[in-house]
Amino acid sequence: MATLHTKSAARAMMAPAVIALFVWMIVPLALTLWFSTLRYSFYGIDTPFVGFENYTYFLTDPRFLSAFQNTLILVLGVLFVTVVGGTLIALLLDQAFFGQSAVRLLVLAPFFVMPTVAALVWKNMMMNPVYGVISQVLAALGLPPVDWLNNYPLLSIIIIVAWQWLPFATLILLTSLQSLSEDQKEAAEMDGAGPLSIFFYITLPHMKRAITVVILIQTIFILSIYAEIFVTTGGGTSSSNLTFFIATLIQLDGDVGTASAGGIVAVILANIVSIFLVRLVGKNLEA
């Protein structure tokens, strides 16, 4: 149905989107690469070429190593909680009970809460060692209060981010669960399969693709967590991830060169992660 005429029209229609995204991808990357080879500060006058100096400086900064570790812990921690928790809650919501759509709305709600609100509500009203609801509940049970953000900053941030993303994982996994045909389960039941073997041999393989999607998409977003750290701990070696650390380099230190080197390192790491992820789960997505 595509004639030459419609083909060139199609190309013209795609051009703005393709060009916009191409420029968005290439120009900042090229500039970052260029700046990363300069000694360039908001407070300096000259911007001399220094080769790899900024990279050495960035990679040997002890804050880099801690930021790198925190990034890994944050991503893996949130993925673990949301995938396992999301699967369990999806299985629960797939059962027959009264008020299904109402409970769905309740479970879904945190996803729509903006990151700064989620983080501040948890920091002040849930995790505060004196007034926080968690401490009050612990006190009622006769347990000592916990100063979450001071003593366990990274764990606290994992809890907050996992709360925000649990609804997403649940919703995707539930959608996938509902497309599983009842016949298959019934047939397995007739053959004498128990609920556990039905879950591991029928339900879980069916959900593989959805779990893959959840992991991929969440990883992209969680690598770039910023606001939750900004309003809770305000950074520091115990809770900064790479995104936050690099943002600090330019926002507070005005150190364009080192921040750019950090940006390039982050891009390389993200690419390694995505290649690794795509390869690990590529087969799943093809189906």
């Binding site: 419609t6 029209a9 900042p28 990357l29 390039i264």
Partner: peptide, 29 residues
Amino acid sequence: FSPTKRTKDVLLWMLSTKMMPAVGALVPI
């Protein structure tokens, strides 16, 4: 409506721009 052989590649490439961490573009922006 006028898909070509490359349409799928273009779509995947667009998706891949989402993989680029925001902090990689922060300094120049």
